[in-house]
């Protein structure tokens, strides 16, 4: 489908809010080759955000929403935290219910959509903070993976509880002094990517959001694998510049510094055998599609 379901009756077009008119005329729902490069030339699926100025979460949101392969049939599930302040501005259906229960909600949601729309694609994508994913919600994060629930879990890892003012979280680095870690965190950053692999995730990536092209690639892969095979997990470093004492301009550099080969956000991926096969098939089809398109344009010329 394309924009069929969001079309405005012509009689009412002029009285709709301009951002909605924009969604209908300039958004990329239904465009198979949508991606981060559309940012700036088409209507984004995020209207605005109420995060701190320069917060890397805002970049991450924009890249992810530009990269979802099937936004017209994607439902997102969030959790309480800084991300929950953005979701009301997002133009795909999204659910906020409680803090930490996102993977449980997504499990029920995905199953309901599968029952209700047999034979149709309905992607489910979870996006939550590290506190939600690893601390209060860890049980439900892992159990959804054990059960092989077919949706993508994205964790915005800012290594602390940002929304409540910078408290210690399980993904915080050892030794970091924070609220509720007054003498420094005493245990290591939880190795969730490894745990995800062992828990049955078929596609796991740990990286920063410094490069939009990389975000696009991993989002698409994660959604495709979740759709066809089983759970996928992305842990994306989105530093909380406010709590680590950086300026609005410094988020990008912070991410670049932390993705160096010896650093904790050096690119790391795990792909299961069936997922590798699927991604290879998709890549081959994509190549064919591009070649065919190229031929068509050269014929037309």
């Amino acid at each position: 489908m394309s924009k069929e379901r969001i079309k405005i009756a012509p009689e009412f077009f002029d009285i709709m809010p301009p951002e909605y008119q924009d969604l209908v005329t300039r958004a990329t729902y239904g465009n198979e080759s949508r991606g981060w490069k559309d940012i700036g030339t088409s209507k984004e699926l995020i209207e605005e955000h109420s995060l701190c100025a320069g917060c890397p979460e805002s970049m991450a949101f924009r890249y992810i929403l530009a990269s979802l392969p099937n936004p017209e049939d994607t439902v997102m599930v969030g959790s309480t935290g800084c991300t929950s302040l953005v979701f009301p501005h997002v133009a795909v259906h999204n659910i906020h219910s409680l803090f930490g229960n996102q993977n449980a909600v997504a499990s029920g949601l995905k199953r309901a959509l599968t029952v209700r729309f047999p034979g149709r694609i309905k992607d489910v994508v979870v996006l939550a903070g590290d506190g939600a994913t690893v601390d209060i919600g860890l049980d439900m994060t892992l159990q959804a993976w054990f059960r092989q629930e077919k949706f993508t879990t994205i964790c915005f890892d800012n290594e602390l509880y940002a929304n409540t003012g910078g408290q210690e979280s399980g993904l915080m680095q050892k030794g970091f002094v924070a609220k509720m870690a007054p003498v420094g965190k005493t245990f290591e950053k939880v190795r969730l990517p490894e745990i995800a692999r062992e828990s049955g995730c078929h596609y796991v990536v740990n990286c920063t959001v410094s490069k939009p092209s990389l975000v696009e690639k991993v989002i698409k892969n994660a959604v495709y694998v979740a759709r066809e095979i089983g759970p996928t997990y992305l842990q994306l470093y989105t530093p909380c510049i406010l709590e680590i004492g950086k300026n609005s301009m410094e988020g990008l550099q912070e991410m670049r510094d932390s993705e160096k080969p010896t650093e904790r956000f050096a690119y790391k991926e795990y792909i299961s055998e069936p997922a590798k096969q699927l991604l290879a098939e998709i890549a081959a089809k994509e190549k064919e599609r591009k070649a065919a398109a190229k031929q068509l344009t050269s014929q037309e010329a």
């Binding site: 229960n101 909600v105 499990s107 029920g108 049980d139």
Partner: peptide
């Protein structure tokens, strides 16, 4: 489900999805 807290959230997800 894995606990009653999770079960009720799973129920919520399914109901949000129209079941």
């Amino acid at each position: 489900g894995e606990s009653e807290f999770a079960v009720m959230s799973e129920c919520a997800g399914a109901a949000f999805g129209g079941a």
